[in-house]
Amino acid sequence: MSKTGQTNDTNVSREELKKKLIQELLRAQKVNMLDEGKASSSGSAMNIIKRLIPKR
């Protein structure tokens, strides 16, 4: 795969990740699950971010 191709793939994947992040955040908001008071809560924004973009 060319370097350009890699960049494109990465872009597509980033776009999807962003969409998923927004979608999950809004869903969590809508069902009142986004509890920012509890950092460890599975619904917290940080945990959604970490789950969707894991360490590598």
């Binding site: 927004i22 955040l25 809004l26 908001q29 809508k30 986004l34 920012e36 917290s44 924004a45 940080m46 971010i49």
Partner: peptide, 13 residues
């Protein structure tokens, strides 16, 4: 309000 809270939550992170 959910959109606003989501923005706020992301900014806080």
């Amino acid at each position: 309000n959910h959109v606003r809270s989501a923005i706020s939550a992301l900014r806080a992170a």
